[in-house]
Design a binder for these strands. Structure first.
Lengths: 242, 242
DNA sequence: CGCTATCTTGAGTAGCGTCAAGTCATGTGG
DNA sequence: CCACATGACTTGACGCTACTCAAGATAGCG
């Protein structure tokens, strides 16, 4: 508990230029002075405890949020109460891009574990990006990447079977952990079966059953939220045969 | 044929400031001089015949495309040949935003009828938007709107039943036609049942069956591609009861 | 007018959802 | 530190939705 508090303080002092995530986050490809300018506009670095909402649909949009550590889910709620998870976000990723369209957030963002985030006021970011073409361009790339990511989810939801969806999901997580320097084969799921199911358009029982089947087939070891990929090639093959 | 050619010439001469779509397209909210600056960077206005591809996945990304008239679909193809329609685009809408992320288009765009489009070189647009904050902001809104739209499709694909999906689809088309000054109750579908099905995560037979059911229930008149909404409220009610 | 693409409709089936019961993990208060 | 409550997960039985396969009708186009 004490060591955690210390860690938190250290991290919160870190600036973009010293952040290990700068190659994944907004500063990608910026020069030293450009990164310093970007640092200057970060409104505040703060923490978000597990279960806490970072923002809610309908609230006024003012800032984007870069995740320094931790794990979030975003979701939308339809009029009749239906809930759809629209994404899982981890360190180095930017949340809140959906809010620009109408000056209000259109989805909810909740922390799935204790998190640290950098709040970036959007008007300041637009202002700065007018002076820094490379920041401007990288910001456009990040928005575009979100669109491409969503197209991938549409493909998954629209034309994959349940097993293919879960295999795709696991391989995607694996690849993102690897890009952040973690093991691609061994990781903890931060979300429940129900949240996975919502994201993949499946019921939680189906997710559970398929985890069990993958386990039996020797593709993964599953112990609750602890996942070990035993045969990533097998998972990939599973997707290609639809 | 002759009258069509004349029409085409007239339209191609039109500039943004005189375009009836300026309230839906990039010039939204720009001043007169700003719109003129935007006009200056439009690379070319050209036509695209039915069945012709405007761009293909993998090709170098250079421009965005604003639709002046006509109808497009975009789709992605997975390694194994699976095809997923990711969107239908009509006049005033911008295509190609997905290409920014990697300097290459990530999906295919094909005209579903003869079209007229304005090609906007992206580097020029970034350049100009550095000088025109309102253009910059509106461009960001358009990208964000695309993300929000995709979230809506994810909700549809992830948690709606077949009938709800088709009802949502019809109401969405209706609303977009209305926003363009056309009848919200009477329109021609430009796409096949198979393309609708791909977009909605359904098979073409299912789409056909549900059209027939809607017809029997007095919700819509369906005569091939000609659609007449007879009871929009009924369609809306149908969605709310999932 | 005939060819082809598109659409409709039917019958049978597979895959995933629903409902239900029971197990396991987590955390809290006594 | 243990007992218990609560939420999360697993597994089974059954049912329904949407898919598959197939045949025939219709529309669009040369």
């Amino acid at each position: 508990m004490a060591s955690q508090a210390v860690l938190k303080t250290v991290n919160l002092k870190t600036v973009c230029s010293a952040c290990t995530l700068r190659e994944l986050c907004l500063p990608i490809g910026l020069s030293k002075t450009e990164v310093e300018a970007l640092e200057g506009l970060i409104y505040q670095r703060r923490t978000c405890r597990r279960g806490e909402h970072l923002y809610r649909a309908g609230l006024r949009f003012q800032s984007l949020y870069a995740i320094r550590s931790g794990f979030f889910k975003t979701y939308v709620i339809y009029e009749d109460g239906r809930e759809q998870v629209t994404g899982f976000y981890m360190m180095g990723e930017i949340m809140g891009l959906d809010g620009i369209s109408s000056d209000a957030h259109t989805c909810h963002a909740v922390a799935l574990e204790d998190c640290e985030i950098c709040e970036v006021p959007f008007d300041k970011l637009e202002e700065l990006s007018r002076d820094l073409p490379s920041l401007q361009h990288h910001f456009h790339k990040m928005m575009s990447r979100e669109i491409v990511r969503d197209h991938g989810v549409m493909l998954l939801l629209g034309s994959m079977k349940a097993e293919e969806r879960l295999a795709t999901f696991l391989l995607n997580l694996s690849q993102r952990f690897q890009a952040r320097g973690y093991s691609p084969d061994t990781f903890h799921l931060r979300m429940t079966r129900e949240e996975i199911g919502s994201y993949l358009g499946l019921k939680l029982e189906t997710v559970s059953r398929i985890f069990s089947k993958f386990h039996e087939d020797g593709l993964v070891n599953v112990q609750n939220k602890f996942i070990e990929l035993r045969n990533a090639a097998g998972l990939k093959r599973l997707i290609g045969e639809g």
